[in-house]
């Protein structure tokens, strides 16, 4: 535990072997698993997790092949008031989710527009439920970085440090930033997406009411 009560949680990978509780870092890009390093339970759980993560990586690679860029999105919520997951409360872990931005993650519905800015952004999010503070770190990443545990450590430490302190250049209020972006959306030609969503909704917005 560090001063904030965070446990170290890292990407744990395995190469033809079940994930091991004492392995930290990313060892290969074939299978990445995220976990609480001290609480590996039954082997069956581990095996299931490995399969799930393999699917994630496969999906990620597929989208990468389509668009050439992606955003990885990792979220951690800590034990205590911020989590409603019994298992997490029981073992004191704060690992709750790992999500990748990929069309496959949306059920293979559509290939979304490419990420606007630079390629290979890795997003690392920490949330402190006690204070409500959210730190969102956005890093230039490459596949080799995701295999480098020191890089992952650095990412974590940088975001964690930001969470400890208040400051930086004040850029606005989240709601206002969002409103500005929505204005741009309103004027953009989104006919294609609208058509897709209508299809998703069963042909007519009225059908979902």
């Amino acid at each position: 535990m560090d001063a904030l009560g965070f446990r170290r949680v890292l990407f744990i990978s395995q190469k033809g072997q079940p994930p091991r509780a004492d392995i930290l870092g990313v060892y290969d890009s074939e299978t990445i698993i995220i976990g609480e390093v001290k609480s590996v339970a039954e082997s069956s759980v581990v095996e299931n997790a490995a399969a799930e993560v393999a699917n994630l990586l496969d999906a990620l690679k597929k989208w990468q092949g389509v668009s050439g860029e992606y955003v990885a999105f990792a979220t951690y919520v800590f034990s205590g008031a911020g989590t409603d997951v019994p298992n997490i409360q029981q073992i004191g872990s704060y690992v709750v989710s790992n999500a990748w931005v990929t069309p496959a993650s949306a059920g293979g519905l559509v290939v979304p527009p490419p990420v606007d800015k630079a390629k290979f952004k890795f997003v690392y999010v920490l949330f402190d439920p006690a204070s409500g503070k959210v730190a969102v770190g956005i890093f230039d990443a490459a596949e080799k970085n995701l295999r480098d545990k020191n890089w992952i450590f650095g990412v974590h430490n940088a975001v964690e440090e930001a969470l400890r302190t208040v400051g930086g250049d004040e850029i606005g209020v989240l709601g206002e930033l969002l409103a500005e972006r929505l204005k741009a959306l309103r004027s953009a030609p989104y006919a294609k997406e609208v058509g897709i969503f209508i299809d998703m909704l069963g042909g007519s917005p009225a059908s979902v009411t």
């Binding site: 994930p19 698993i33 995220i34 976990g35 609480e36 609480s39 590996v40 339970a41 759980v45 581990v46 299931n48 997790a49 799930e52 993560v53 994630l56 999906a59 955003v71 999105f73 979220t75 997951v85 298992n87 997490i88 073992i91 872990s93 690992v95 709750v96 989710s97 790992n98 999500a99 990748w100 931005v101 990929t102 069309p103 496959a104 993650s105 949306a106 059920g107 559509v110 979304p112 527009p113 490419p114 990420v115 606007d116 800015k117 952004k121 997003v123 969102v136 956005i138 989240l174 930033l177 969002l178 500005e180 972006r181 959306l185 989104y190 997406e193």
Partner: peptide, 25 residues
């Protein structure tokens, strides 16, 4: 991420999560 222009509408989906049984790891 959306407000700051890192992703477009439709470009973020956070539904790929490790299943509940994996959270114990």
């Amino acid at each position: 991420l959306y407000a700051e222009g890192y992703a477009n509408a439709g470009g973020i989906a956070t539904e790929v999560t490790l299943p509940r049984r994996c959270w114990r790891i």
